[in-house]
Amino acid sequence: MRTMMLALAATSLTVPAVTVATPAAAHQARAYSGKTWYDSQGRLRCRRSNGTTGLIVGAAGGALVGRAIDTRGERATGTILGAAAGALLGRQVERGRSTRRCR
């Protein structure tokens, strides 16, 4: 009985390892593999950043710089303008940081 239970346990551990698809098989099937994939019409597509992280970081940095530059009055104008400019600049930098070009 003990031998049969050990054999059953060994078999149950090897079956999932055999049925797992390898990355090479997925690539041959033209499926998704990382940052590139093939769409339903066979065209190569890339995953690109939408710039959200750059937008948030740029807005925070721009608000701080705008507040430091605007020294008159309430400084709200400088903070708002700095945040807007920083957000636009940060988003452009984040979206333009692509090392691989896909079409």
Rank of each mutant, 00 (worst) to 15 (best):
G78M: 09
G86M: 06
A68G: 13
R43M: 08
I56Q: 06
A76H: 11
R75K: 15
R47W: 00
K35N: 03
R95G: 07
T79P: 01
G86S: 06
N50S: 09
G51L: 08
A60H: 03
R45T: 02
A83F: 02
T71F: 11
A84R: 01
G54R: 05
S40R: 09
C46S: 07
Q41G: 06
G54N: 04
L44F: 01
T99R: 11
G96H: 09
G73M: 12
A76D: 10
L89I: 09
A76F: 14
C46A: 08
G90P: 00
L88G: 08
T71W: 12
A84L: 15
L55D: 00
V93G: 02
A63C: 14
L88D: 00
G34K: 10
S98C: 09
S33G: 01
A84N: 00
R67W: 15
S98N: 10
R75A: 08
L88I: 11
R43L: 13
R47C: 01
A76Y: 11
T53Q: 10
R48D: 00
L89M: 12
Y38S: 12
R67M: 12
C46E: 04
A84H: 01
G78A: 02
G34P: 02
R97V: 12
E74S: 15
A85K: 01
G42L: 12
T77P: 11
E74N: 13
A84T: 13
T36R: 15
L81G: 06
R48S: 04
D39W: 01
A84F: 11
G42C: 07
V65I: 14
A83I: 07
V93S: 03
I69E: 02
A85I: 07
T36N: 06
R67Q: 10
I80G: 02
S98R: 11
A60S: 11
A87D: 04
I80A: 06
G61T: 10
A63Y: 06
A87N: 05
A59P: 03
K35T: 05
Y38H: 11
S40W: 04
G58P: 01
G62V: 08
G58R: 05
G54P: 01
A76L: 14
V65N: 03
L44R: 12
Q41F: 08
K35C: 05
R95I: 14
W37Y: 13
R67C: 09
I80F: 11
T36C: 09
L64M: 10
S40D: 12
T71C: 05
G78I: 05
R43I: 06
A87T: 05
V65T: 12
L64Y: 07
A84V: 14
A84G: 02
L89P: 00
I69Q: 08
E94F: 06
T36A: 14
R75P: 01
S49L: 03
